[in-house]
Design a binder for these strands. Structure first.
Length: 660
DNA sequence: TTAGGGTTAG
């Protein structure tokens, strides 16, 4: 639209400098202000023009041209330097950042500017150039708090926890006032510290104590970061304490605490806290991250009813436009046993699917023992040009393992190199599991011995698990000789080996292991099972003498067992490690949490209703046999998700085909 | 100028 400036009745307002007297200027009306913005602006001097051009080129991603121009400008502005640095970081162009650095050093106006030192450190950090970021800091003539904080952030990003802590200490010594940003970065650095000599928890506690001394312990951002740190370290009680003492909480802090429970295998508490948040007077509205976390928690305890309520909320609030939310929703349905609903969500995402969506579908099929379908989804994904990730291969190899697809798994493992995904220990663990479960133990051991990287505890753990299935004492001892070194406090390894010895009738060795457990005060992770009845979640713990309902539930299971014994069933007491009478062992078996959850479901639901149970450990053989029987005897469909996969019991048969 | 929470696997 062209504008006839001279014909305007407000001509004198458009060019006030041409008007009569500034003091007599009438007040601008709304329409005249609009007109003023359209007025021609005098051309800027040439150097301003050049600065503007560089900034525009950066915004449009034309970095080579911007870089060339920057070198020739006589007086770049602060804004121009900033634009090029941000663009270099965005484009992953370290050479460009270095070029700006050199230009800046030759600039007498800005070479001491702390703002640009901050931006330079940020850019180098984002580009993974920690030495260069350090150099900028070391040579910075003026170190404002922003420059210090940028360095801490750079160190955190590069997993240099101890160095970040040392810098924080420097700040104290040099009397640089530490602020909330410094603490937040310092805390993150501790968690990310992989090469650190000190345990991350000690570092976090040190910074925590420091923050408290300086009066920052209750600052919202610092406290939220603390909650997340303790969550990642698995120290839930500390996170709870921080959360409880926060004077001000917002969604982010509630979400961090919910996430803490979800991450630390306390999904039930995550859901309770979410309900508390919704009921609180603080006018808190869950956002997409809260929803994703809580969906994850629902999946963890099979809380399908809660999950469906969230689904409705997602649709009502328009969160279905976010792929991350839909991925979490899909995962929730599939982990709660509703494969069809999960597939429906997957399809509804349409062209917005990302690699996580595909991975979720693949692992969903895997969990349900549908290996061929999982492999097919993998093929579809790659045909559509989606690059498989590290997790894609873990998922699809896991699916092959659950379904016993040895040749398919081997083919996929070998194809990883074609997709530029280098096999990691996780993939080897999947392969050892796949080969081992299928009884190819020699091949599994050969694979471990030929690994180009050090086998992780998961790799040896897969071998040990396979040895338990196939009763192979020698390889089990080989795996444990490594595992006892690598994970001396993991009671599960001792228990598995004891089980293998017990079944091989090597009782003296069982005694040795039991003593070891006692001496080192190691405890088995108690078995827990969850069942949702009428949208309320119920948890059962194995061998729970405190719950008054347990006796009634055990009695019911006992009746089924009596029936089964008539058909020749013998309780599988091999899983009970205690040195007690056979009868006592049978009683312990009756108290397994999964059986209690089944009995509770039978009593409290209507005839024909499907029972959905989840469990924190692998299903034991005895529970598997008993559940098969109950499904037939009571004509009930029972879906149990153990730590690895689904077992779909119907009419006395399990979908895993007794292969798990 | 800067900062805090999330999804897929084993």
């Amino acid at each position: 639209m062209s504008f006839p400036a001279t014909a305007s009745p407000h001509a004198s307002l458009l060019h006030p400098e041409v008007g009569s007297r500034a003091a007599a200027r009438p007040r601008l009306t709304r329409s005249s202000r609009c007109l003023a913005s359209l007025a021609p602006v005098p051309p800027p001097p040439p150097h301003e023009n050049a600065n503007h051009l560089v900034q525009t080129l950066c915004a449009n991603g034309r970095l080579a041209r911007a870089a060339a121009l920057l070198q020739g400008i006589p007086a770049p502005t602060q804004r121009t330097y900033e634009s090029v640095l941000l663009a270099a970081a965005r484009a992953g162009d370290a050479a460009l950042a270095a070029a700006v650095h050199r230009r800046l050093e030759a600039d007498p106006v800005f070479r001491s500017d702390p703002f640009l030192s901050t931006r330079l450190i940020d850019a180098y950090a984002a580009l993974g150039e920690l030495p260069a970021a350090r150099q900028v800091f070391d040579e910075a003539p003026v170190r404002s708090i922003f420059v210090w904080n940028a360095l801490l952030k750079a160190l955190a990003l590069a997993d240099h926890g101890e160095e970040a802590l040392a810098r924080l200490a420097d700040m104290g010594r040099l009397r640089v006032p530490v602020d909330s940003y410094s603490y937040a970065h310092g805390l993150k650095a501790c968690i990310a510290a992989s090469a650190s000599h000190a345990p991350a928890s000690a570092l976090v506690r040190e910074i925590h104590a420091h923050a408290v001394r300086r009066g920052y312990g209750l600052h919202t951002h610092v406290a939220t970061t603390l909650i997340d740190c303790y969550a990642k370290l698995g120290i839930v009680s500390y996170a709870e304490r921080v959360f409880a003492t926060m004077p001000e909480r917002n969604v982010v802090s509630w979400t961090a605490m919910i996430g803490c429970y979800a991450k630390n295998e306390r999904p039930g508490d995550a859901i309770l806290l979410f309900q508390e948040m919704m009921a609180s007077d603080e006018d808190l509205v869950p956002n997409s991250i809260t929803i994703v976390s809580i969906l994850h928690a629902c999946a963890g305890v099979n809380a399908l009813g809660q999950g469906k309520l969230l689904h409705a909320y997602i649709l009502r609030r328009g969160f279905d436009s976010l792929v991350s939310v839909m991925n979490a929703l899909m995962a929730m349905y599939m982990k709660c046993g509703c494969l069809e609903s999960g597939k429906h969500i997957f399809n509804s995402i349409g062209h917005r699917k990302d690699v996580v969506s595909w991975n979720t579908l693949i692992s969903g099929y895997g969990m349900h023992g549908l290996g061929h379908e999982a492999v097919q989804v993998f093929e579809d994904m790659t045909h559509m040009g989606v690059s498989p990730s590290i997790i894609t291969f873990i998922s699809v190899l896991g699916a092959c393992s659950h379904a016993g697809l040895v040749d398919e798994g081997k083919r996929l493992f070998e194809s990883m190199v074609d997709y530029n995904v280098r096999p990691r220990t996780e993939h080897y663990a999947c392969m050892v599991d796949l080969l081992g479960r299928a009884g190819h133990l020699d091949e599994a051991v050969e694979l471990i011995q030929g690994m180009h990287i050090t086998p992780s505890p998961q790799v040896w753990g897969s071998l040990l698990g396979a040895c338990r299935i196939h009763r192979h004492v020698e390889y089990a001892e080989m795996a444990c000789s490594q595992l006892f070194d690598l994970e001396p406090r993991n009671a599960g390894n001792y228990v598995l080996l004891a089980d293998i010895y017990a079944r091989a009738k090597l009782h003296s060795q069982v005694d040795v292991l039991r003593d070891l457990l006692e001496v080192h005060e190691l405890e088995k992770v108690p078995g827990r099972s969850w069942i949702e009845v009428k949208k309320k979640l119920h948890m059962f713990v194995s061998v729970d003498n405190k719950n008054p309902q347990v006796e009634e539930l055990q009695a019911l299971i006992g009746e089924f067992v009596t029936q089964m014994k008539n058909d020749g069933y013998v309780p599988d007491t091999g899983v009970v490690m205690y040195d007690i009478e056979e009868e006592e062992k049978e009683k312990i078996l009756l108290g397994h949490s999964e059986k209690l959850a089944v009995a509770f479901g039978l009593i409290n639901t209507g005839r024909g209703e499907v029972l959905r149970i989840s469990k924190n450990l692998r299903l034991c053989e005895d529970c598997h046999s008993v559940t098969k029987f109950i499904s037939k005897f009571t004509e009930r469909e029972i879906i149990v998700r153990d730590v690895n996969r689904f077992h779909h019991f119907r009419d006395g048969v399990c979908s895993c085909g007794d292969y798990w």
